[in-house]
Design a binder for these strands. Structure first.
Length: 108
DNA sequence: CAACACAAAGTAG
DNA sequence: CTACTTTGTGTTG
C-alpha cells in the first residue's frame, strides 16, 4: 500500500527531510511540537532552523500538519505573537485558527 | 555562496 | 538578573 513513508521515499527528498515530515505526521491531534523538539527526534538536535526549512518546502500541504509546529517559546507563553511563521495559504492567521480548532490554547 | 517558518549559549549592562 | 549578539544546523535557490 502507498503509505506516506513510501511516497516520501519516492520523492527526491533527503533523509533529514523525510524524517522531519514523518515526525510531523506523528504529532497527535491537539498537540504541538517545537522545531527543536522535531530536530531532536530526527537525530539532529540544534537543527531547528533546518526543520523550519523542511516545513517551508513541505511537499504535502495538507497531509503534513505543518501548522502544528511552533517555536519552543510558544510552549511556554502560548502567546499568539510567538506562534511562529506559516508559509501555507492563509498565513499565520490560518495557522492560529487551525490550532484553536484542534484544541490548542492560544492567548491573544 | 546566501537565506531561512529556530534554539541555546555567550557577552554586556 | 535581563537584553542583545553570535554560532550551530540542513535544505533550497
Amino acid at each position: 500500500m502507498e503509505t506516506l513513508r513510501n511516497k516520501l521515499n519516492t520523492l527526491k527528498l533527503t533523509l533529514f527531510t523525510k524524517k522531519v515530515l514523518l515526525a510531523l505526521v506523528d504529532i497527535p491531534l491537539g498537540q504541538v511540537r517545537s522545531y527543536a523538539q522535531i530536530a531532536t527526534i530526527v537525530g539532529q538536535p540544534g537543527a531547528a532552523r533546518a526543520v523550519g526549512s523542511v516545513c517551508k518546502n513541505n511537499p504535502f500541504p495538507v497531509t503534513i500538519p505543518c501548522h502544528r509546529v511552533v517555536p519552543s517559546k510558544f510552549l511556554s507563553t502560548h502567546s499568539r505573537q510567538d506562534i511562529g511563521n506559516y508559509s501555507c495559504v492563509g498565513g499565520v492567521k490560518k495557522k492560529i485558527a487551525l490550532l484553536l480548532k484542534e484544541g490548542v490554547k492560544v492567548v491573544d
